[in-house]
Structures are given as C-alpha cells and as structure tokens.
Amino acid sequence: MEYFLQQLINGLTLGSIYGLIAIGYTMVYGIIGMINFAHGDIFMVGAFIALIAITALGFVASTGIGLIILALMLVLVISMLFAAVYGWTVERLAYRPLRGSFRLAPLITAIGMSIALQNYVQIAQGARVKPLQPIITGGYTITETMTENGLFAVQLSNIQILIIVTTVILMTLFSLLIAKTSLGRSQRACEQDRKMAALLGVNVDRTISLTFVVGAALAAVAGLMFLLYYGVIDFYIGFVAGVKAFTAAVLGGIGSLPGAMLGGLLIGLIETFWSGYFTVEYKDVAAFSILAIVLIFMPSGLLGKPEVEKV
C-alpha cells in the first residue's frame, strides 16, 4: 500500500508535466487540425531558458525560501515569455504561409522546425547534458513502515508539491481563459468554423497565433518543472517528452482540453506504475500498448467527441 502511494505521487508529478505539454498539442490540433511536432522542442527551449535564467540569477538551495520562490516566479515568467516568442515565431514563419496548402505540408515543416530547434540548441548550448544543482530540496515523510527489506518511507518532496500545485493553478486559469473570456470563445469558434468566425470579425490569424503563444507558455512551465525535478536537461528532451505528451493528447481525445489533462496524468501514472511494479525498460512499451488498446475500442480517445457525419 505504501509502495502504491509513493508510485501514485511520482506518477501524478510526471503526469502533470505531460499534461501541461499535451495542452499545446491538443489546442493547436483543435484550431488548425495539424500536429505541431515542434511543440516538444518548445518545451525543451523553455527548459533551457529557465536554466539560463537560474544561472544568471545565481541562486542556490542555501538562499532563503521566500527569496527562492520569488526568484522562481521570475524565472517562470522569463521562460514563458521567451518560449511564447519562439512559439509565435515558429507559427508565423513555418505554418502560416502554408495555411490552405495541402494537409501534409505543415506536418513536414513542423518536423523540420523540430529538427531545426534541436540542432540550434545543440550548437548554441552544446550537446552535453546540463546539470542543475537541486534548488528546492526537502520534503515530507507521509508514512513509515518496517518491511523485511528495512524501513520504507513514503516521501512527498517539496518539488513534487510545487509541480502539482503549479499545474493545478495553471490548468484552472487556462480553463477559465477558454470558458469565460472572449479569446477563449473566439478560439472555440475558430475550431468549429474558421470562415464564419472571420465573418463575425474575429481575426483568425491572430487567434491562431495566440493559441501557439499560450501553448508555448504552458510548455515552458513544463520545461522549468522538468528542469527542477530531474536536474538535468539536454537538447534532446523535447523529443521524448513531446512524443509522450502527444500520446497523452491522443489518449485523452485530441482536440479536447480536459482530455489532454487526463491523458497526461494517465500516461504519467502508467509509466510510473509499470516501472514500479514491473520493469523500467518496458515502461514506454506499456504506455504505448495501452494507447493502442484504448484507441481500438475508443477511436476518438477517452474524452474526444466522435465525428458524426450528417447525411
């Protein structure tokens, strides 16, 4: 039971990171029907910008806790801003000129942008992994039990709390944005009928740009969390995390925002539980097998709407 609880905590943490990235995939798919393969790399760029900002600010674990939180907020804002600029630029340069072209064209440029961003960071930052000294340390021991192998303690670390709380706050704000504001409404309108939205005076190009900007900002948050949690990043993290987050979006039902959040959590949980109870080596196989099985029985994902064709 204690072991289960520990895996649950770890899974929720990982799932939060995947969920934050998955939102970017699902939003872009919803509004323009393309898979933005460069999104995972925006996440990676976000992590690097966070690392640069942390290094520049030069704070370490010994700094007071209040100051750390303040500094991390600043880092968060900086990396969200920069990643948003990256997201906007990618859309403006690589996708907008191809809008209205055949469906595969933006897909190919997306892959191109993904490779371009990876190589750019590889050259600019070097190919080696970048370590970061743990900044947020400590945590709580929830329960302790004696087992035949010794003491087993269920740990909830401060960084896990930070990740889960930040994710919950951001997802709430983001859901409010989509449900209650005029940007959210026009985004949903563009999803359903872009031409009609334009005829009602909605600037569709700008709405799409803002979708990329918001998605990139959320990915940057995930990047910072990843950096703080694992303490190492390299130019390649965007690929693996991107594929997982994309899987999460498909699992939850691509185009559905609650679906992306749910899918992210599920992929995170499946991975950790599989690693915890079976073998670490096969965790990706497990996650993708479950995806395949779900899609066989629910082709539009867990929360996706099936497309009904009227005749």
């Binding site: 005029s182 026009s186 309108a189 939205a197 009602l200 005076g201 909605v202």
Partner: peptide, 8 residues
Amino acid sequence: VAQHNPLM
C-alpha cells in the same frame, strides 16, 4: 463571439 472585438 459576434461581439468579440469590443470585448477583446
């Protein structure tokens, strides 16, 4: 949605 612009 039709009143998007003033709201925005």
